[in-house]
Simulated scan of single mutants.
Amino acid sequence: MSLIVITILFFLVTHFKRDLFKGSEPLKRSEGVLFITAMITLYLTKGGPLDLMGHLMFYAHMIQMAVLYLVIPPILIVAIPNWIWRKVLNLTFIKPIFTFFTKPLIAIILFNGLFSFYHIPLIFDAIKMNMWSHAGYTVFLFIFAIFMWWPLMNRLPEYQSIGGLMKVGYIFGNGILLTPACGLIIFADNPMYATYSDPSAWMQALSLCVPGATLASLNLSGPEVFNSMSLLEDQRLGGVIMKIIQEIVYGVVLAQTFFSWYRKEQEESDTADLMNPRFVE
């Protein structure tokens, strides 16, 4: 319901009531399509069956994490019109915070650090078994995912902190920094997380999205009821899936970044040739 309200408000502000905002610009069709895509994807990730599956099986949780932090944020950044970004970022209490946390080095270290910190078994289990901690950390990490993607995806000329080959290096750096967490999960010799291996911890984590009375009536013994794989295979599959989705997303962004940089270099080279007196002669 909340996503429907957000979507309605978005189109009211960007299309139907746009004239009420000074400096507004017409909504592009691509922006509208991307915003709807982001909202549908967000619902499928956090409001659909995948959210429940993420409490039952670790690999589903990692799919959810990958989509939530690697797919949705860049789509949202591009979907929201530049004039809205400018109005939000020019707010006195937001601009200094946003400017600081979107500095490329800070953004890349903090996002990947927070993601890796989350997957330390002790931290992971504590967050998964507490509703407020789980919701809070999810939102917190999503905000830092926006910070991480901002240097790559934003279209505001005044916020272009890196360009060309530096963006390529930024993408490679992201891939490298996320690898240790995935590697730890993939190559572990034993199941790492109590919320997917210990029946009592698993039930407590599951109670965040399933009413207690319903759980009591099901008489579940543990996560193996819903998963044909062993706990270790499930865990390793989750790490592999996370890494694959990361490589696909970063690969697409890398290709777009490289060809955009190449076209720009070619245009600048052609312009320089045209302005060269020898070329004119």
Rank of each mutant, 00 (worst) to 15 (best):
C209P: 02
N219E: 15
S207T: 08
S200R: 12
Y196V: 03
P211R: 05
F172T: 10
T179Q: 08
T179A: 15
A213V: 14
Y193C: 07
A194H: 04
I185V: 12
G175C: 14
L184S: 10
D198C: 07
I186N: 07
G173V: 05
I185H: 00
P180R: 06
S207R: 03
Q204S: 14
I185Q: 03
Y196E: 01
T195D: 04
L206N: 00
G173L: 10
V210T: 09
S217R: 13
N190R: 14
I176V: 15
A213H: 13
V210D: 02
N174D: 09
G183A: 14
T195Y: 03
D198I: 02
G175V: 12
A188K: 05
A205M: 04
L184W: 06
L206T: 03
P191G: 05
W202R: 00
P191C: 07
L184Q: 08
C182N: 06
G183P: 03
P199Y: 10
L206G: 02
G212S: 10
I176H: 11
G212D: 09
N190V: 12
N219P: 08
V210Y: 01
G173P: 04
G173Y: 08
D198Y: 05
F187T: 14
A205S: 13
A205G: 03
A213D: 11
L184K: 05
L208K: 03
A194K: 04
P191V: 06
G169H: 09
L215S: 03
A201P: 01
P199W: 10
A213R: 12
S200F: 12
L218G: 09
Y170C: 02
A213L: 12
G173E: 03
I176P: 05
M192S: 04
N190T: 13
D189M: 06
N219V: 12
L218D: 06
M203L: 15
F187M: 15
P199G: 10
T195C: 07
A213P: 01
P191F: 00
F187A: 14
S207I: 04
W202K: 02
S197F: 04
S217C: 08
S197K: 05
N219K: 15
Y170W: 08
L178A: 08
W202I: 02
A205Y: 00
A201D: 12
G169Q: 09
M192K: 01
I176R: 10
C182F: 11
A194P: 02
A181Q: 00
L178I: 12
G212I: 12
L178F: 09
S207C: 07
A216D: 10
N190M: 11
